[in-house]
């Protein structure tokens, strides 16, 4: 667990990495819109090409971008099966497959949904692989900032998110330490059924939470000592700035997505 990386971010200095997180968040939003609007496979081919170009510009290893697809492979299989297989020979052209019937038209439909899932997963993977979690939190905060006028504590939520991200490795490390220490007292985490296993985690979870609360207490003191006041306006050393390249990418990408959504 020591080598655990936050989220799945892979640091690099590529064109995609350098884009403002808002550009990338917006890009994924338009991508989603297009994916759910188009009705033809040809549209997917074009969207696939756009994504492939982005992956190339991100200098990320293709394998890591496709890892997310592997994670949803079961969902893909179920989607295909649910559309392609029937209990009765209801439709024309269906073929017997043991007790089931294979429906080619359904298969094509299922494949359409499956491709949509694949493209969506690859697109969002690209976002999280090429954007640090902190930048993502910053981007979300900036996008949500108008909500602050409605009384939504946008700044506090963003700070919460940043601190949660910051403490993930610390907490994972501590969980590992506590597990090893309890194992040294004879605790077993890999024996028995699910209930016994869940109960075996009590000696890990209780100290972990007690320590987290203590940590939270001290952190609150340290934050106040450095003039943090909940809800007050802060500035940022790295102010997010939309550069010309961001606007160009966003306009071109959004235009393409909207055109596809309307035309296909």
């Amino acid at each position: 667990m020591r080598g655990l990386s936050i989220g799945q971010y892979i640091p690099a200095d590529s064109f995609v990495h350098r884009l403002d997180p808002r550009t990338k968040l917006g890009g994924v939003a338009f991508l989603t819109l297009a994916l759910f609007s188009v009705r033809r496979f040809e549209a997917f081919a074009l969207i696939g090409a756009m994504i492939a170009a982005s992956v190339a510009a991100s200098s990320l290893p293709v394998r890591s971008v496709l890892r997310g697809v592997k994670a949803v492979s079961l969902v893909l299989a179920i989607t295909l099966a649910a559309h392609a297989l029937r209990w009765g020979a209801a439709t024309e052209g269906a073929m017997a497959l043991g007790p089931l019937w294979f429906d080619p038209a359904g298969f094509v439909r299922g494949a359409f949904f499956a491709v949509r899932i694949v493209l969506l997963v690859v697109g969002t993977s690209l976002l999280t692989l090429a954007t640090s979690p902190v930048a993502l939190a910053d981007g979300l905060e900036r996008l949500m900032r108008p909500l602050a006028t409605l009384g939504v504590p946008v700044g506090d939520v963003a700070m919460m998110l940043t601190i949660a991200l910051r403490f993930i490795p610390t907490t994972a490390y501590e969980a590992e330490q506590v597990m090893v220490a309890q194992a040294a007292r004879g605790a077993r985490f890999d024996e028995g059924g699910p209930i016994r296993r869940a109960r075996a985690l009590v000696p890990v979870l209780v100290p972990l939470f007690v320590n987290l609360f203590r940590r939270a207490d001290e952190l609150a003191v340290a934050m106040e000592a450095r003039c943090y006041v909940s809800g007050r306006r802060r500035t940022r050393m790295h102010e997010l700035r939309m550069h010309l390249s961001d606007w160009v990418v966003l306009v071109v990408w959004a235009g393409a997505c909207l055109a596809l959504a309307l035309a296909m």
Binding site: A181, A184, G186, V202, P203, V206, P207, V210, N211
Partner: peptide
């Protein structure tokens, strides 16, 4: 195996494991 009853290990800050 387990070695716990033969060799007892007290980790650093062991009070953080009390539960």
């Amino acid at each position: 195996r387990p070695a716990a009853s033969a060799v007892g290990m007290v980790f650093q800050n062991p009070e953080r494991q009390l539960f």
